[in-house]
Amino acid sequence: MTDSNNTMELVCPAGNLPSLKIAVNNGADAVYIGFKDDTNARHFAGLNFNDKRAQEGIAYAHQHGSKVFVAINTFPQPSGWKRWQDAVDHAAGLGVDALILADIGVMDYASERWPDLRLHLSVQGSATSQESIDFYHRHFNIQRAVVPRVLSLKQIKTVAENSPVPIEVFGFGSLCVMVEGRCLLSSYVTGQSPNTFGACSPASAVQWKETDRGLETRLNNVLIDCHAKDESAGYPTLCKGRFNVGQNTYHAIEEPTSLNTMALLPELQKAGVAAIKIEGRQRSPAYIDKVSKVWREALDACHQDPEHYQPQPAWLNALQEVSEGSQTTLGAYHRPWQ
């Protein structure tokens, strides 16, 4: 599926209507949103779209030539099944441009009930190879797959080349070091996971406490980190804490950094990647404003002249300011190994 004239779409997050409008105004080709419940993987208090807001947002986006995707990308259990079914019907009724789904049962339902509705495989579907993407394409006719942030650039190229459908990759935002859809660390500690509840390390389980040792951050009483006075304390996402392994205390799983693949855009474009996704529906309209503007410029520059494309220092500085731990990384994309 490679294409030398490939134009990569910019897919921006929106947790509310102001963010959606900002992303559209800044030239997002598509905006993705979720409903106000556990049917999506950013199920946070005060976030997401009710009926009226979703309608307004979709109308606004369509007037301005942008698409709207709805994420229904958590895994329903029998007791909640109807909520997911309703979410699918609801989104279809609103005239959205695509659903982003993860669960096989939900995909089966959506493809039977709404055969003309475009389906994307969510990153929560954990498809890390063309072979698994093929499963969802064969059975549910998905039109795009979002691939996990654990793949290296070389692997992305292979998947893009062999996948039956175009792929979307993460360009910027919080970094999951675990394969999405296959990480239960959060429910092990709190009872709620991205799969079941749509949140990782949920705020209701977080405790902050000033002690003689420093500022302790806990998740359901488990000490995730302890910050000295001169250290900035981040949100206690549990894989980003400091722990003891052997004699050492360190970020044993992952440093608190953000993913930034801006430097790789020409290669992603050449590989035939269909879209660059920005993470962060939970972030503020100010974040959406900054990030969507910078990425629009970068994608345009890359498309016009990929040979001479260079990320501008001003773009990188802008992204640095809104990055977790004020650091960015190429994540797994730069890995030289298989």
Binding site: F75, W81, D103, I104, G105, V106, Y109, H139, R182
Partner: peptide, 11 residues
């Protein structure tokens, strides 16, 4: 991830 009857029956 087999979390519901839809998925179980499909597979």
């Amino acid at each position: 991830n087999i979390y519901n009857a839809g998925t179980l029956k499909f597979l």
